[in-house]
């Protein structure tokens, strides 16, 4: 069986296309590369969608936290506190069992007990809270002069927000937000280890890496493969965000442009 056959059989296995059974013996390197790579589809799916959707909620939450209305401010603060103050792992578990309980009340929640929607919702809210805090911090450090200049031009409300506040906030937040994005992609590996079942063994990259490590009792091959895939993924994320960073800073004099510094931190 050549490697091409294996790729044809297992390349899209993680989304249910191809061979039904996972390989059980005679694991080749090709098997491991193909299946783990196939699982990466899920990581990208979770990461990209949660990131895009979370971006908008994060902006709203940051504005809410800066709001003068007590109700909105308190609500935003609590939202951020709950999602940043507790482990994502526990959030996944709680959400899964919550959706299970709701499912027994109403069928609408059936889809939420599956990872593709339920885990996505958790990741979306989680990243919105973390990015919301980043955006809020950036909002506070918008230079006073910028706002005064906007006032001097007679800009108010939505116009001021769209032309001045928001772009400046993003510009200042961007390096930290890049880290958050990397973070989020790392966090997607938790999904199938936290309650959400991998139906018909359709799992993410770590799920398959763990599968191989369990079957071969040799962790020294699947995990480095996974690490390699993730390093590539992170490099792609970094270059994409770096491109946007350049665009956000294009009006600034060359030497004062913020260079993106990457601090890859941490779990949550």
């Amino acid at each position: 069986m050549s490697c091409w056959d294996i790729i044809a059989d297992y390349g899209l296995r993680s989304i249910g296309i191809g061979e039904r059974l996972l390989p059980r013996s005679d694991f080749t390197l090709c098997h491991q590369f193909t299946l783990i790579g196939s699982g990466l589809i899920w990581n990208i799916y979770f990461g990209v969608i949660a990131l895009i959707a979370g971006f908008f909620l994060a902006t709203a939450v940051a504005m809410g936290k800066a709001s003068r209305n007590v109700v909105i401010r308190k609500a935003s603060e609590w939202f951020i506190f709950v999602f940043r103050g507790s482990p994502l792992f526990i959030q996944f578990f709680f959400a899964y069992f919550l959706f299970l309980a709701l499912k027994s009340q109403s069928d609408i929640f059936g889809a939420f007990t599956a990872a593709w929607l339920g885990a996505l919702v958790v990741l979306f809210l989680n990243t919105a809270a973390y990015s919301g805090e980043i955006f809020y911090g950036a909002y506070l450090s918008i230079p006073k002069g910028d706002i005064e200049a906007a006032d001097a031009y007679g800009m108010t409300g939505w116009t001021r927000f769209r032309r001045i506040t928001w772009p400046t906030m993003l510009r200042l937040a961007w390096p930290a937000y890049t880290n958050e994005a990397i973070f989020l992609f790392h966090a997607t590996t938790l999904v199938f280890f936290s309650g959400f079942p991998a139906i018909q063994q359709k799992g993410d990259a770590l799920y398959y890496a763990n599968y191989f490590a369990d079957k071969t009792f040799n962790p020294f091959i699947p995990y480095p493969i996974l690490a390699g895939y993730f390093i590539v993924l992170v490099l792609i994320v970094i270059s994409f965000f770096g491109f946007i960073n350049k665009r956000l800073n294009r009006h600034l004099p060359q030497d004062s442009r913020g260079k993106l510094r990457f601090k890859l931190n941490l779990i949550r």
Binding site: Y223, F230, I267
Partner: peptide, 16 residues
């Protein structure tokens, strides 16, 4: 260690 999902490290190191 910082570039790779930590959970992968947890699963890896325990067996390794």
């Amino acid at each position: 260690v910082r570039g790779v999902p930590d959970i992968a490290f947890f699963l890896f190191f325990v067996i390794a």
